[in-house]
Structure formats: C-alpha cells, structure tokens
Design a protein around this nucleic acid. Structure first.
Lengths: 99, 99
DNA sequence: ATTACATTTGACAACTCTGTCCAAAATATT
DNA sequence: AATATTTTGGACAGAGTTGTCAAATGTAAT
C-alpha cells in the first residue's frame, strides 16, 4: 500500500546493475556518504543529481524526475488537507506557460 | 498570461477589506515586516500562516492552500522539464493513501 | 582470519533560511 | 505643512540544511 521512495527507486536500480555507491557518487561528483544518505532517505536528493543519475543508471530522465517530484511533494506538502486540488491548480498554472 | 502569485493574492484581498499589515501580522503572530515581504514575494509564506490568513481575510481555506501550493510548486520545481508528468504521478501517489 | 572493498555513522564547516528589530521611506489625515 | 500611520529595507541572530571527512561497521573473497 505504501509507495516507493525516490531513494529506494535508485538504490534498487543501482544494485540491479551492480554499481557500487562509490562509482555512482563519483559520477555525480558527490561524496559516497552523501549518496548513501540519499538512497536511505536520510537526506533529500538535490535536483542536480537527476540527470547524471538517469545517465549512469540507464534510466529514463522523465521517470527519474517524476519519481523525484512525487516523492518531494509527498514530503513537502503531505500535511495540507487540500493537496490534491492544489496540484490540479498547479498543473493548470504550468500549462498556462510559465513566467 | 502570467499567473497571480500567492503574495499578490493575499495582498489584493487584504487591501480590498482594508486591513493594515499590522493587524493581519498581529493575528498571524508575526512581524509586520515579515508579512510585507511575504506579500511582495521576497520571502515564501510558511504553511503555518494559511489557516489564520484564511480566517482573518475571510477566504476559503481550500482556495488559500491551493494558491499556496500552486505558487510553491512553480517556484520549487519550475526548472524541471517533466514537471507535469511528475505532478500527475504525485496525484496518483496521494490518492493511493499516504503511508 | 586477513585483507580488500562497500556502506554507514557522526561530527563538523559553510551556507541558506526564517523571522525580528528598528530605522527609513511612503502615504494618509488633520 | 505637520503629524500619524503604514509600509519597506537592511542588518542581524538562531535554526536548519547540505555536503565533506574520517572513522566504524558490514560484507566478500582468498
């Protein structure tokens, strides 16, 4: 019933293709320790990680971003009663071109 | 073509009902200066403000939250290419009941 | 069991964020 | 124009965040 966190998502993939944290972290140009924390949800992922992650893990960037956003929204806005309506409104607002 | 920020939204209403920053800020239990900055978009609104704001401004809480979320998402995720898909996914995830 | 490699942990510095205080500027009232 | 009120600006403190480093722990391989 619970959803897969962003950290689980990338860890699962990393393990599947048998890359050590060390290699992935080096590719992202961050400390191994940082990536470890991100995978375990102890720290949030920086958006800067998304592109390199999708590349080195061989994942679709769209999917990576999608998981990232879904996870972050759940964390950031989970407490608000009217989140669903807010998301709908946000979608409309974005459709209406930005800036 | 551009959308109304959260700050504009509450300022417009506050001015319409002729309340000074001072009064609204006092009701939210924050400094006048802080509210001024929030209204002008110099600082983000804290989610704690939403309920008292809706009360003192006589606005529907759902609308206030909705504007807040839409604004924040635009700011926080505006740089991501696949934001719309991410929002869709987030909605599904939320529908699937939280944790 | 030693050695090598992978991962986690905790302390830490640098930076950012949030709100306050108080002075300055803008606006309204008399 | 003088005074009162509202609004803004900038310096600041305290809290929180981000990532690093180095040591500790876990895991495999020989």
């Amino acid at each position: 019933m619970s959803y897969q966190t962003f950290g689980d998502y990338i860890r699962t993939r990393r393990v599947a293709i048998e890359l050590p944290l060390r290699k992935v972290a080096a590719y992202l140009d961050i400390d191994t320790s940082t990536l470890s924390k991100v995978e375990r949800g102890e720290r949030p992922a920086s958006p800067d990680y998304l592109k390199p992650l999708s590349k080195i893990l061989g994942l679709d960037l769209k999917e990576v971003q999608t998981k990232y956003i879904a996870d972050k929204i759940t964390n950031d806005f989970g407490a608000l009663e009217h989140l669903r309506e807010g998301l709908k409104a946000a979608e409309k607002q974005i459709k209406t071109k930005k800036k």
